[in-house]
Design a protein around this nucleic acid. Structure first.
Lengths: 242, 242
DNA sequence: CGCAGCCTTGAAGTAAATCAAGGATTGTGG
DNA sequence: CCACAATCCTTGATTTACTTCAAGGCTGCG
């Protein structure tokens, strides 16, 4: 079941068995890629969309000096560029962060789904709007939080997303990216990321070393981040989950 | 024709007459509101969506100290909270900036459209994704531009959007908001906005006084902003338009 | 072994926030 | 018609957060 992580913990129950079968059968190909490959360039005409099965991807834009700003980080189960179907061309680049396994869905199949499956269509639409909600939270993070809060927020978000697809236990998880990537996501220099990580470590809130995250004091981390996971539209879940 | 500005200059031609008629007839009510009223609160269940016919609106989130971060500014023709249809509840507040005229579309009607009109559905979906593209550009603006660039970018964007619905001639247009609003959109204090506006004025780039914008040197403004309107997904337009 | 990539830390410089005080403009009630 | 309040704009002085520049250390790998 290639689509098993798609919308997992997010209203997946509203998909009928037929819907899931239709989605599953719309996949044309599964392929592996290496870390740090750019798969789609801004402005290109896109004719298929990409479901991320395993690994980490990102979307980003460059400024005039070529400095990157990440606009999204994706985990297993994310339909990375489903928005490319209605948009036809993207306004940003799409790249892998780690080694990944991808499934591709041709836009012709999506056209059929829109014509024949209103329920699945509404839920695919929903899934692209979760990305928009995360964009809004990133705007908030960049506009209103200081470096300390921005870094904390990043880790809260990625942990929540990984937990939803069972890739984090809420205390410890692998995140094979470097401090510079973190800076590109949070709008600051790699040097400053380093200092903030030291502060978080020294205060016993969390650690990030060698691509491994350990959350030591979740409450504190979430307070620093002003984190409230509502914007992720996860199913109401067991409050004692962790 | 209440929907005449919806997707104006943005693939509106892909809508058939029937699609437009269906959309038009899905409007249940038209109503006026005053400036600075909050219409929807984050977390509320929403059962209709709002088409902005005239005036300015915004969407925003508050931080713990109650400071606002705007996440979007809307102009005539924008379907402000169409994303509330698939999402059911919003992760942010929706408010008016100026006096506005609004048209409401019940979600029941949208369900019918999704069931019966795949073409219109795809284009409604498209319209919500333009908002996501603008969110991404805001992330870029906040993460990579300094105050000078951020303010310049804000004015480039709002001008482009207003031009698309014929509310700006590209040189001069009304924008009845204050310097503090600008700060809330661009992630900086009102005081600093004031200093940046002075700089833009003294350098002959643009002026913003008494709710009126005058663009004096568009090329320079766009260079300061690193502005490229691709992300607005406007129809390819007459390059000599201005 | 030696290089490359990444992390770490210090020192100095800069952009923006904060604090504070007036000034202009608009609206309002006496 | 004028006093006065409210709101918004403007500017200066100081502080703070973050960047930039620079150097060196660690780790894994060919």
């Amino acid at each position: 079941m290639l689509t098993k992580d798609f919308l997992r913990d997010r209203h997946r129950s509203e998909l009928t068995k037929d819907d899931i079968a239709a989605l599953e059968s719309s996949i044309s190909e599964v392929k592996d890629y290496g870390a740090r490959e750019t798969l789609i360039r801004a402005g290109e005409r896109v004719r298929q969309s990409t479901l991320l099965l395993e690994g980490l991807m990102c979307r980003y834009m460059d400024d005039r000096q070529g400095e990157r700003q990440l606009v999204a980080v994706h985990v297993a189960g994310d339909f990375v560029d489903l928005h490319g179907f209605p948009l036809r061309r993207l306004d940003h680049d799409v790249a892998t962060l780690t080694e990944v396994r991808l499934a591709f869905v041709p836009h012709g199949k999506l056209l059929e789904i829109v014509a024949e499956r209103p329920n699945l269509t509404r839920i695919l639409w929903f899934s692209t709007l979760i990305d928009a909600a995360m964009h809004r939270e990133w705007i908030f993070r960049l506009g209103r939080l200081n470096a300390y809060g921005r870094i904390a927020h990043f880790f809260c978000e990625i942990d929540a997303k990984l937990q939803a697809v069972n890739r984090s236990d809420g205390h410890h998880f692998p995140l094979p990216i470097n401090q510079n990537d973190l800076g590109e996501a949070c709008g600051m220099t790699g040097v400053h990321v380093n200092r903030i990580l030291r502060q978080l470590r020294e205060e016993g809130v969390m650690t990030f070393r060698g691509g491994e995250v350990a959350i030591l004091d979740r409450k504190r981390l979430e307070r620093i981040a002003e984190f409230d996971p509502h914007y992720l539209y996860l199913d109401e879940n067991d409050p004692d989950r962790n």
